[in-house]
């Protein structure tokens, strides 16, 4: 009896947890279809906030800058991070120590500290704030995470395989691209995923280092939230949809691919 009660109790607790975590998201989605301007009274279904959002130039620009910055920052930080991680795995301990300590700084520091540091750096170098500074900042905080996710994979690799490839006549470049990189691909992919989401969601650092009319979605939501603007709900819903679809793709595509492979293998057997 008491065990059953416990089960019901934990069930209720977890249900409330789900309600707490998802209610605001559902609330946003529901009110993005609200006819009126109110964020509290649902007066009727309408798509007008969506048409307003697509017509709003600042919102579309922010969406574009966010996606462009996330793609560029992910691509650059994944390549640089992977190269650096491979280099680090062959480096002397002292060099590795220095880089690891440097990488810890943006990870351990509060974001706002990193942000003001970059703000002052750009100002000292007389770099004008805008998309470029935002991209530099994003690359800066993404690379440490890429390195962190590639390094453990590299540590498990057998160094003799790359040596063997070179003994058999492969150039160092070939050994790198044909042997080492394919072997640590899972780490590289998860690093790229982390980098993309970090860049896509970043607010604090972008807020400090961008300017001249360039903003990303987070900055837009922050500045627009001071007044009532249901278009933000529409934009939020759009983001929720984009993120959900990409998460599903990331999770589902590998399973479909492996199933297909298994099926192909089966067909061959027949």
């Amino acid at each position: 009896m008491s065990k059953k009660k416990k089960k019901i109790g934990s069930g209720i607790f977890m249900a409330l947890m789900v309600l707490f975590l998802y209610a605001p998201i559902i609330y946003t989605i529901v009110f993005s279809f609200n006819e009126g301007k109110s964020l509290t009274n649902f007066t009727g279904f309408s798509l007008k906030w969506y048409s307003k959002m697509f017509a709003n130039k600042t919102m579309m620009e922010a969406l574009f800058y966010t996606i462009a910055c996330a793609i560029l920052a992910t691509a650059i930080s994944t390549v640089v991070g992977t190269i650096t991680a491979i280099g680090l795995s062959k480096s002397r301990k002292a060099v590795r120590g220095i880089v690891e300590q440097l990488n810890q700084l943006p990870i351990m520091n509060p974001e706002i500290v990193t942000a003001i540091g970059l703000l002052m750096l750009f100002s000292a170098l007389h770099v004008e704030k805008g998309f470029f500074t935002m991209l530099i900042a994003h690359i800066m905080f993404c690379i440490p995470y890429v390195i962190l996710s590639v390094m453990p994979k590299l540590r498990t690799l057998n160094p003799n395989i790359a040596e063997a490839a070179m003994d058999l006549g492969a150039t160092p470049w070939q050994a790198l691209t044909k042997v080492i990189v394919p072997q640590c691909m899972p780490g590289i992919i998860s690093g790229a995923l982390i980098a993309f989401t970090m860049s896509f969601d970043d607010f604090v650092i972008s807020y400090f280092v961008t300017g001249n009319g360039v903003s990303n979605i987070s900055i837009l939501v922050y500045t627009e939230s001071r007044r009532v603007n249901p278009s933000i709900n529409a934009l939020s819903t759009l983001i929720v949809v984009i993120i959900t679809i990409s998460l599903i793709l990331v999770n589902v595509i590998p399973t479909i691919a492996s199933k297909k492979e298994a099926k192909l293998a089966q067909d061959k057997d027949i």
């Binding site: 998201i25 946003t28 969601d201 987070s218 939501v221 983001i239």
Partner: peptide, 8 residues
Amino acid sequence: NMLVRTYA
């Protein structure tokens, strides 16, 4: 996005 969820 954290801002989006906080705004809700």
